[in-house]
Design a protein around this nucleic acid. Sequence first.
DNA 1: CGTCTCTTTGACAGCATTCAACGTGTGTGG
DNA 2: CCACACACGTTGAATGCTGTCAAAGAGACG
Lengths: 224, 224
Amino acid sequence: MIPHLAISTTRQPAAARTSAGGAESQEPLRAAGTVVQFSEGNEIFAEGDDSDVFYKVISGVVRICKFLGDGRRQIEAFHVEGDVFGFELGATHTLSAEAVSNCTLVCYRRRGVEVLAQKDQTVTRQLFHYAMQGLSRAQGHSLLLGRRGAAEKVAAFLLDWAGRSGQDVVNLAMSRQDIADYLGLTIETVSRTLSQLERDKMIAFSNVRQIQLKKIEALEDLAA
Amino acid sequence: MIPHLAISTTRQPAAARTSAGGAESQEPLRAAGTVVQFSEGNEIFAEGDDSDVFYKVISGVVRICKFLGDGRRQIEAFHVEGDVFGFELGATHTLSAEAVSNCTLVCYRRRGVEVLAQKDQTVTRQLFHYAMQGLSRAQGHSLLLGRRGAAEKVAAFLLDWAGRSGQDVVNLAMSRQDIADYLGLTIETVSRTLSQLERDKMIAFSNVRQIQLKKIEALEDLAA
DNA sequence: CGTCTCTTTGACAGCATTCAACGTGTGTGG
DNA sequence: CCACACACGTTGAATGCTGTCAAAGAGACG
């Protein structure tokens, strides 16, 4: 709905990664996938849906989340270009997926990929690689959530996203509420913490969703 | 739901797996491994060590953890019989591993397994399965840490371990400090929360490390 | 019996949440 | 073009939970 600013997720490494080594190993997989589009806020799949398909992000940002009984929402991950999400051991998805921004995905049929993997060892290895990446990411998230202070979490979050873009300017595709649900904080605490960081001249706002990191070392100290 | 997830997708089969279909698919792997023993409190590998070996738990409990700059420790996972831990994408371990109790492990050489995987597709598939189990477990941990209250975390933790043993009596192999570092709480808060749960007649202590769950539904409500 | 470690309990301070109000920006309709 | 509505974000005040500091209890072991 409300087509926001085109704060498009300007993600430099787009070109870099495609031209890197990953392309060739994806070749066999690519044939099994179909391109799909989702617009901001739309559901890609829900918890409990059949996990007969999984996705890879071409552009845009996707959030993987779980809705708790009391209305709270926990975001388990934000996925960006190159990330694979939605494949499971079981028959159904254990988490929901939603488009944070307009995004382009490749949709893979699980059966088809399994058949492919039987013939082509590189496919199996590719899937293994994606699983390990997911594992590494989830472990990082646990470590992030285990941190004590709100400032630590927010600083770590900003550094993480700065690292992805490779610049010291972070373009946040997601809302404060998304950030809060990802960090296990409330929206007010996130807002207050960002304001405090700005007062401390560690960051500066270009606009609400574009943040410049001015004292990266200080932020790293905070993130411990 | 954490416990459900753990039960259904990750480790239901402790006993079942050994006798069921899992055994044969491990066969080719088993040959590549050597049995090793670690006694309580000993380090298995440290963060930064070469990740040229990984392990599978035969018996006992292992903790995977990270030490932070300020002396805090975060436990990313407890591994029990059947779990595989310590294999990485990179050349070094990103986390440390220590024996929580005396334990027996199988140690696999990474190179050797990679060679095996080249020839034997079942090995590759087995590794993929382990990676996915790890992913599922790490996601569950993130969800656990994202919870707000101490009671929610502790209740979810107890239910998780009850699910592993399949009984309503939990034998905790780890100390209160271990639990605290796993849940992102302090040892005092863990202790207080357990005492409160006992006062509410939801649990009862056989001894300090053996807890009987008396109102599982109430605990599940707490765990949300 | 004493010592050591682990665990529990208490008192208090600090920080995040809650509830509430206000500010900001974007799109719509007059 | 301006005014309004609405969603999103920020800020303030008070409560409550968890962390911190301190001390006492409980087992294990020599």
